[in-house]
C-alpha cells in the first residue's frame, strides 16, 4: 500500500511539474509575454520597464525556475484588473465552484446509477431503449446550450427557477458560521438546480451507459448465475452480488468526471452569471487578465490531480486485485 502511495505521489508531482511547464510554455508561445501585461498604448520605455520588472529579460530556464518557485507559493503575480494577488482573487471564487461541481456530480452519479441498473435489468425492452436514447441525446447537447434553454423555458417562461445568482453555503461554513450556512442550504440548492443539470447531464448520460454495460457484463458472470440458482431473491442478487463488482469502473469514472465537470462548470457559470471560478475565467479572458487565468487553471489542475489520487487509493482499497 505504501509503495503504491509513494509511486502515485511521485507520478502526481511529475504531472504537476508538467502542468506548470505547459502553463509556462503557453505564456511564451505568443512571442514576448510582456505585451500581455501592459496596456496597448504603452510606450517602448514602459514596455522595457515592465519586461525588467516581470523578469522576462532573463534566460528562459531562470524564468521557468522562478515561475515554479512562485507558483509553489501560490504567487502568480497581481491580477491586472483587480489589482490584488491573482491567487487571492481565484480563491474567493472557489467555494461557489466547488459547491456547483459537487452538486452536479451528486446529481449525475445519483441518477445514473439507478438509470443504468434499471436499463440493464430491462435489456431490450422499451424502457431500456428510452433510457439509452436519453443517454445518447445527453451526450450530444452542449452544456451551455442546455443552460440557455433552461433559462428560456424554466426561468423566463414558467418562472420556476432563478435564472442567475448564488446563495453561499461553503463560505459561511468555512467562516465557522454554521447557522447561516445551513440556513442558506435550501436556497443554495434551489439556485444550483438549473446550472447543475446543465453541467451534469453529459456525465449522467455517459455514466448511465457505462453502468448499464458494466451491469450487463456482471449479470452474465458465473457467480451471479450461481447466486440465482441458490434461490436468492433477484433484489439481493443485484445489490449484493452484481452491483458490488459493477461499482469498480464507476469509481474510476468519478475521478475523471470531476475534472470533466470542472471544465463544464467554466462554461456553464458564464451562462447563469454564477459567481464562481468559471465566470472569473471568462471575465479574465475578455480583460486579458493572464495571471488570473493561469492561477485558475493551475488551481483546478491541482484539485483534479489530488482527487484522482484519492480515487486511486479508494479503488486500490476496494479491489484487492489491483496491484499495489
Amino acid at each position: 500500500m505504501w509503495t503504491f502511495l509513494a509511486r502515485r505521489l511521485l507520478q502526481s508531482i511529475i504531472v504537476l511539474i508538467g502542468v506548470t511547464l505547459i502553463s509556462f510554455i503557453s505564456l511564451q508561445m505568443g512571442g514576448d509575454p510582456t505585451y500581455l501585461f501592459v496596456s496597448e498604448n504603452a510606450s517602448v520605455e514602459e514596455i522595457a520597464r515592465a519586461r525588467e520588472a516581470l523578469g522576462f529579460d532573463r534566460p528562459l530556464y531562470v524564468q521557468y525556475l522562478s515561475y515554479i518557485w512562485n507558483a509553489l507559493q501560490g504567487d502568480f503575480g497581481n491580477s491586472l484588473s483587480y489589482r490584488q494577488p491573482a491567487m487571492d482573487v481565484v480563491l474567493q471564487s472557489m467555494p461557489a465552484t466547488i459547491e456547483l461541481t459537487f452538486f452536479s456530480l451528486v446529481l449525475a452519479i445519483g441518477l445514473s446509477i439507478p438509470l443504468g441498473i434499471y436499463a440493464a435489468l430491462n435489456r431490450g425492452k422499451p424502457v431500456d431503449g428510452g433510457i439509452m436514447t436519453f443517454a445518447m441525446l445527453g451526450q450530444s447537447i452542449p452544456n451551455f446550450w442546455m443552460g440557455i434553454m433552461m433559462i428560456l423555458f424554466f426561468g423566463l417562461y414558467l418562472r420556476w427557477f432563478p435564472i442567475s445568482g448564488h446563495v453561499p453555503f461553503l463560505e459561511p461554513l468555512f467562516d465557522g458560521d454554521f447557522a447561516t450556512a445551513f440556513g442558506n442550504l435550501p436556497r443554495s440548492i434551489y439556485y444550483m438546480i438549473m446550472p447543475s443539470i446543465a453541467v451534469g447531464t453529459y456525465t449522467l448520460a455517459r455514466n448511465a451507459r457505462l453502468i448499464r454495460s458494466s451491469m450487463l457484463e456482471v449479470l452474465q458472470q458465473d457467480y451471479v448465475r450461481t447466486a440465482r440458482s441458490k434461490g436468492i431473491s433477484e433484489r439481493r442478487v443485484v445489490i449484493h452480488h452484481a452491483m458490488r463488482n459493477a461499482w469498480l469502473p464507476v469509481i474510476t469514472m468519478i475521478g475523471l468526471e470531476f475534472g470533466f465537470l470542472l471544465g463544464g462548470v467554466v462554461v456553464v457559470e458564464t451562462v447563469f452569471s454564477y459567481p464562481g471560478i468559471g465566470r472569473l475565467v471568462f471575465n479574465a479572458i475578455n480583460q486579458r487578465d493572464i495571471p488570473v487565468v493561469q492561477a485558475s487553471v493551475i488551481l483546478l489542475a491541482v484539485i483534479f490531480i489530488l482527487l484522482n489520487l484519492i480515487v486511486d487509493m479508494i479503488y486500490a482499497r476496494l479491489d484487492p486485485r489491483v496491484k499495489l
Binding site: Q11, I14, V15, G18, V19, I22, S23, S26, L27, M29, G30, P33, L36, G259, F260, L262, G263, G264, V266, V267, V281, I285, R288, I290, V293, Q294, V297, L300, A301, F304, I305, N308
Partner: peptide
C-alpha cells in the same frame, strides 16, 4: 508519460490557457 500529463487535467482548461495567449 507525456500523454499522462496531458490527461491529468481537463482539456478545456488547457485549450483556454493556450488560446488566451495565442488569440
Amino acid at each position: 508519460r507525456l500523454g499522462d500529463i496531458q490527461l491529468a487535467f481537463p482539456f478545456i482548461l488547457l485549450a483556454i490557457m493556450f488560446l488566451v495567449v495565442l488569440g
